[in-house]
Simulated assay, not measured.
Amino acid sequence: MLIRLNAAQPYALGLFRFVIGLIFAIHGASSLFGVFNGRDTEVGAWPGWYAALIQLVCGTFVALGLGTRIAAFLASGSMAYAYFVVHQPEALTPVENGGETSAIFCWAFLLLVFTGPGALALDRLFKAGTTAQAPADETRREQSPAVSV
């Protein structure tokens, strides 16, 4: 049973990445364009408009698996900023200051920075098309670990 769960891990991570990125992108779109019961943010207003732009762009990139680690790093940082600048001064804990969403997004994106995109990411599709020789090279390195390349 554990072996089957381990085999599904890249797909579960890919699904996690897609859902988190999609929710983040929708949140940004709702602030930028007033869709999904959101409110329009005035263009160029600090920090709301820039935060919404980061949410839309980084969320889309994360959902698609394009530059996942970089996009997730930027998204995590923006949510850390939101938590510590907007929410934390109001009260100590996220439950008290309304910062649960910012805190959860921050940690979810930070996890993706370290784990990568998982399965079904567009980055992997582009890498597969450009580096057809890479798998054979990796196999040779695994077979002879004492040889340094």
Score class of each variant (00 low, 15 high):
residue 107 W to I: 14
residue 68 T to G: 02
residue 58 C to T: 14
residue 102 S to D: 09
residue 88 Q to D: 10
residue 104 I to C: 06
residue 105 F to M: 05
residue 96 E to I: 10
residue 61 F to S: 15
residue 63 A to V: 00
residue 82 A to K: 09
residue 66 L to R: 03
residue 60 T to V: 14
residue 96 E to N: 07
residue 96 E to V: 08
residue 108 A to V: 03
residue 69 R to N: 04
residue 90 E to R: 15
residue 84 F to A: 09
residue 72 A to I: 07
residue 93 T to C: 01
residue 76 S to G: 13
residue 61 F to N: 02
residue 89 P to K: 02
residue 96 E to K: 06
residue 84 F to I: 14
residue 90 E to N: 14
residue 73 F to C: 08
residue 103 A to W: 11
residue 73 F to G: 10
residue 94 P to H: 01
residue 63 A to H: 00
residue 85 V to T: 13
residue 73 F to L: 08
residue 76 S to R: 07
residue 79 M to P: 04
residue 69 R to I: 01
residue 67 G to E: 10
residue 100 E to K: 00
residue 71 A to C: 11
residue 78 S to W: 08
residue 89 P to I: 01
residue 58 C to I: 01
residue 72 A to W: 00
residue 62 V to D: 07
residue 81 Y to P: 13
residue 110 L to E: 11
residue 109 F to N: 08
residue 105 F to K: 02
residue 82 A to H: 11
residue 68 T to A: 05
residue 57 V to S: 14
residue 66 L to A: 14
residue 92 L to N: 07
residue 66 L to W: 10
residue 91 A to L: 06
residue 91 A to P: 10
residue 104 I to Q: 06
residue 98 G to S: 04
residue 93 T to V: 05
residue 62 V to A: 15
residue 84 F to Y: 09
residue 65 G to I: 10
residue 59 G to L: 07
residue 60 T to L: 14
residue 74 L to I: 15
residue 58 C to Q: 09
residue 110 L to I: 00
residue 87 H to S: 02
residue 90 E to K: 15
residue 71 A to D: 00
residue 77 G to F: 03
residue 66 L to I: 12
residue 82 A to P: 00
residue 82 A to D: 13
residue 87 H to F: 12
residue 96 E to S: 12
residue 59 G to T: 03
residue 64 L to A: 09
residue 103 A to V: 13
residue 100 E to L: 12
residue 102 S to A: 12
residue 75 A to V: 07
residue 61 F to I: 05
residue 106 C to H: 02
residue 89 P to Y: 09
residue 104 I to M: 09
residue 65 G to N: 07
residue 80 A to L: 08
residue 81 Y to C: 06
residue 66 L to H: 13
residue 59 G to P: 10
residue 100 E to A: 08
residue 108 A to L: 08
residue 103 A to E: 05
residue 76 S to I: 00
residue 80 A to Q: 03
residue 79 M to N: 09
residue 105 F to T: 07
residue 57 V to L: 15
residue 91 A to M: 08
residue 62 V to F: 12
residue 105 F to W: 03
residue 104 I to S: 00
residue 68 T to P: 02
residue 68 T to V: 01
residue 109 F to S: 06
residue 85 V to N: 10
residue 110 L to M: 11
residue 83 Y to R: 06
residue 89 P to H: 03
residue 95 V to Y: 13
residue 74 L to D: 03
